[in-house]
Structure formats: C-alpha cells, structure tokens
Design a protein around this nucleic acid. Structure first.
Length: 613
DNA sequence: TTAGGGTTAG
C-alpha cells in the first residue's frame, strides 16, 4: 500500500517518533554501513551484463540462482534493462538471496536500487528490514522503515513480525514487549498467528513462560486464536522447565479445542519425558503418535535415540536407528552424535569411532559438535593424543574449534596431568580471541588445583575477579575444596568468609564443600556449627549435606550426633547415597553393636528403599 | 512463528 505521507494519520507519526529516535541518531553509520557493503558487490563479475537485453524473466527465475556471482550478474543485467523489470522481479531476486542467507548482499543491492532510483514496494522494505535484523542490526531495520515511511509506504503485519523477531534475537526483550503492546493498543496492524508466535517464542526463550501463557490466553479473547504452533511452543518450554504435568494439561486442552497436535508437539513431550528419565512413558507417547498417523521424523527419532543412549541402552538405540531407516527417515549429524555420545559414556571408544566413520560413509558430514562429542570421549578415557589428533584435524575439514572444543581439550590435558600444555592452550585461546566462558575458568581452576598448582589457581581467580569477568560461586567452591584437601583450613575458612562480604550468592555446594573439608580435617564441631548456620541464612541443608555430616560424625566417633542427623534425615525423607552407605559399611565392624544406630543406617539404605518402592 | 546432540563444580 502506498499513500501520500501527508495523509498518514497521527497514530503513525506517534509510532515513528517513538521508535525512531535510536535508529535516526545512527543514520551516519547507517549510510556508511551500506556504502561499505556495496563495495564488495562491485567486485563481482559484470561480464554477463547486457545493456540492451530485452529478455523478460520467466516465472520463478530467481529459484535457479545458485550463488552470489549469478545473483549479482543478474541484478546488474536487470538494472540496465529498458524498460526496467517489474518490482516483483526484483522482489524475487532479493527473496532468493535471503534464502541463500546472503543478508549483506541484499542490503548492498538495496543501496544500489536506491541509487538507481528503482521503484520499491513494501515487500522489498520487509526483505531489507529482515536482512538488517538477521545481521544483528534491528536499529537499522527501524531506520529503513523510516525511509520507506517517508516515501509513503506503510508497515504491515510482516514488517512488525520481522522487527519483533529482530528485537528478540538481540535480547531487547523490553523493547519487543513495548512494540507488541503498541501494536495491540494502537492497532498498528492486525496481529496474526506468526506475530503472536514470535512473541510467545521470544518470551519462552528468555524463560518467561508465564507471560507467554498470558499472551496465549489473550489470543483466545481476540480474532486470531491460538494454533498448534503457539501451543507447541508453550508445551516445549514447560517440558524444558521439567513441568511435564503442566505441559500435558496444555496438550489435553489443545486436543479438546480441536487443535491437532503435530510431530513437533509430540517430539517436545517425548523429549521432556526422556529428560525426566521416564522412558516407558516416552515410548507410550511415541506409540500414540503412530496410532494417530503422525509420522515421527528424524528429530523425534534422534530424541529417543539420545534418551536411550543417556540411560546406557545403546543396543536399543541402535535398533531404533534401524527402525528409522526402515521407515525412510535418514539419520543426520544429531542422530549419529547421540549414538556416539552413548558409546563414549560407556567408554566404548572403538564403537564410537565406528559410528563417526559410519556417518562419514553415509555422506553426513561431521560438524563441530560431532568432533566435540568424540574428543570428549577420548579425553575421558585419558587418550589425549587421539583427542589432540582430532582437534588438529578439524581445521583441515573446514571446522573451527569453538570454546567447547577447547574446554574439552583443556580438561583432557589436566586429566593426564599435562598442566603446561593446558596453560599453553589457555593462553592461545586468549591470543586467538577465542571466547572464554564460565566452563573455561571452571576447568582451569579445577585442573590447576587438582594437579597441585593451588597458587596458580588463586592467581587465576584474582585475574578473573580483576577483569570483572563473569564470576561464579563454583570457582570458589573449587578453590575451597582444593585448600581443604591440602589441609589449608585457615585459608579455606578465610576465603569462605569473604564470599559473604563480596556479595556472592553462596549456595548449598559451597557449604557442603566447606563442611566436607572441615570433617576431613577432624574439625567436626565447626562443621556442625556451619550446618546449623545454613538454616539461619535460608540456604537449607540438602540430602548431600546430611550424608557428609553423618559420615563425618561416624568417622569422628560421634555416634550420638550421627544418630541425631540420621533421624533428621528420616524426618525429611532423605536417603543415604550409595557412596556414603558403602563408606559407613566399611566403618561398622569397628563400631561395636549399637543396634539403634545400625537400624537407622539400614532404614536409610538407598538400595532397600528402592527395592521396596 | 514451534521440536533434537557436546564442555566445569559437592
């Protein structure tokens, strides 16, 4: 729709005034951005250009474009044609480029179209805005909207959906919510399923499922009712939050409303059940979808295969691969990755390697994650040389190791005590500009501490603190544990006490580490005082805390206190974990015949409890 | 506009 700017209502002016301040302010950079991108286009071959070509374009001509050179060549041909091809033909070319993920090229061609004064429409506006959003510049997307607006083009529901998605992609959730409210309150467009879907998904992705549910309820009151996608998004996120009952309630609700669940809905539910270790229920749902003639796809099968592998049921997982192939579903990198990880978890590296080779022979290229899985497998088996070989092989296959790859190798090097090599890799990561994350620091601190380099670990911790990098309480847990192992209780205690002053979120693990350390050093009285302190600061002792203190008391000969803690565990429904239980069993012969104590220990025996349940 | 794999810490 093209209208005279003067005729555009006050409602629109208010909208543009509100949303453009940021985009307009950067207009200088915006034009610079466009001119720098267009220069790359000038380099492409123009040899196929024919100024006098009168050839018209067949329907769907753009779908034949295979690469950037062909697209640029065709574009040059088009702008020189007289008369010019229709705006629809330019649309098709740009749309094809979006499908080829050539976002910068779209922006650059748009600039050329502006320079050549080629007429444009809303479709081109949306394509260009989308390109800016996909290169992470939603602000320029708003600027483009302003430019089109000035020439009388009005945004539609697709424009707003694109901008909303761009805002969510850049984590500008507050702005996205603001825009959504404006769209609804000021009726800027009639929201459709797609627009609602973007908002629901964006909210879910930041963990705000409750607001997403409110949007779904709001849809029910309007013209555009919730569909299978809005329901599936909510269901998936409830499953990810381990709220399976709530997810099932939404599932039931959608079925009752006559909205048919699809393969995505079922896959999410099956994934949720697998994550909860409820394999039988997952298989029940799988059979249910078959009954309703909803065909499981490669994603559904990969979820099940992964679930089976994580439970160690690798033979069943292999069987599932056979079934999917029989049903015409081709395993992909995810499927093979799940299978490989299953073998790695069991330390069956030869079989994991065979899966790796099998996927290559099937024409499925290994990706970064595939390498990370197998490298991790070798590291865990202390086969660091094989892991390093694969690590070095990655660039030859066109794959750039990422932070996870480096973290895995770092851990592997520490496992075999190669601290110098680990430190070298850590330095290289920094020199290469590789992003360091919470895992990198955790692995470094743990590796250094465990290999007897507590001073280096402490220096690294100071460096992390000084650089104001993301601090995690787990860093301190690692160091406290290391100090306690070395019998440096004064230093551990001092560090522990500073955590409260630093305003760090001291958790159960920190307390458990400190209590465990004190017990191992025979400082039982202090350990018990610390446990009592947990309740005072509302960081309540867990099952693990009680396991630690019971074992500590028994080892320290404080049977009466051990009994008291065992009774407390019973009241709270806690069990002895298998390692504590076997440690206690070893102690028992020297404990004489305290029947009450023995009875309490037996009562909290996890194996007997499991058998009786 | 919806679904799947990999790295730390008691």
């Amino acid at each position: 729709m093209k209208r005279n700017v003067c005729a555009i209502s006050f409602r629109w002016r208010a909208f543009f005034f509100f949303f453009f301040s940021a985009g307009e302010a950067e207009k200088g950079f915006f034009s610079q951005f466009l001119s720098s991108s267009s220069s790359s286009v000038q380099c492409h071959s123009l040899s196929n250009c024919s100024q006098s070509s009168k050839k018209r374009f067949e329907h769907g001509f753009a779908n034949n474009i295979k690469n950037v050179d062909e697209a640029v060549s065709l574009f040059r041909q088009m702008v020189r044609m007289k008369p010019l091809p229709s705006v629809i033909e330019f649309n098709q070319l740009l749309d094809r480029l979006i499908k080829l993920k050539q976002y910068l090229l779209v922006i650059s061609l748009y600039k050329d179209m502006c320079d050549s004064r080629i007429p444009m429409n809303e479709f081109i506006m949306n394509v260009v805005i989308n390109s800016f959003c996909l290169v992470g510049r939603v602000d320029f997307g708003f600027s483009v909207l302003g430019i089109f607006f000035k020439s009388g083009h009005l945004p539609d529901v697709i424009t707003f959906s694109t901008l909303l998605r761009g805002l969510f992609r850049q984590n500008r959730v507050g702005d996205a919510q603001e825009l959504f409210k404006k769209i609804v309150n000021e009726k800027l467009c009639e929201p459709n399923e797609v627009l609602y879907g973007i908002v629901i998904d964006g909210l879910c992705k930041i963990g705000n499922t409750s607001t997403a549910i409110k949007i779904l309820r709001f849809m029910e009151s309007g013209r555009c009712k919730p569909d299978v996608i809005s329901y599936s998004t909510i269901i998936d996120n409830l499953c990810k939050d381990r709220m399976h009952d709530e997810a099932l309630a939404f599932f039931k609700e959608m079925v009752e409303k006559g909205i048919a669940p699809n393969v995505v809905t079922y896959s999410s539910l099956i994934h949720g059940l697998c994550n909860l270790g409820k394999r039988e229920e997952a298989m029940k749902l799988f059979n249910e979808m078959l009954k309703f003639k909803i065909s499981p796809n490669v994603v559904t099968f990969s979820i099940l295969i992964d679930g089976l592998c994580k439970e160690g049921e690798i033979e069943e997982a292999e069987l599932m691969v056979k079934i999917m192939i029989q049903r015409g579903e081709k395993p992909d990198a995810f499927t093979y990755g799940a299978l490989m990880d299953g073998y790695c978890l069991q330390g069956r590296m030869e079989e994991a390697r065979r899966v790796f080779d099998r996927m290559v022979s099937q024409g499925v290229g290994p990706n970064i994650q595939t390498y990370n899985i197998i490298i991790n497998g070798y590291c865990k088996k202390r086969k660091i040389d094989t892991a390093m070989h694969l690590f070095r092989e990655m660039p030859q296959k066109g794959l750039k190791p990422n932070t996870v790859t480096c973290n895995t190798i770092l851990q592997g090097l520490f496992y075999v005590g190669r601290c110098v090599d680990a430190q070298e890799l850590f330095n290289k990561m920094q020199n290469d500009g590789q992003k360091l994350d919470i895992y990198t620091h955790g692995i470094m601190l743990h590796g250094l501490t465990n290999n007897g380099h507590i001073d280096e670990a402490l220096s690294l911790l100071t460096m992390i603190e000084n650089n104001e990098q993301h601090l995690s309480i787990s860093f301190y847990n690692i160091i406290i544990q290391g100090l306690c192992k070395l019998g440096k209780f004064d230093e551990a205690r001092a560090l522990f006490n500073t955590l409260f002053l630093k305003g760090l979120d001291v958790d159960k693990i920190t307390f458990n580490t400190m209590i465990s350390g004190l017990c191992s050093g025979g400082l039982l009285k202090e350990a018990k005082e610390l446990l009592a302190k947990m309740g005072e600061i509302a960081c309540y002792p867990s099952e693990v805390t009680y396991n630690i203190i019971v074992e500590g008391c028994l080892k320290g000969g404080e049977d009466a206190d051990a009994l008291m803690y065992l009774e407390e565990m019973d009241r709270r429904g806690f069990l002895l974990n298998s390692s504590t239980f076997s440690n206690i069993l070893d102690l028992l012969p020297s404990k004489g015949k305290d029947h009450i104590l023995l009875k309490a220990i037996q009562k909290l025996n996890p194996i007997e409890k499991l058998a009786s349940s």
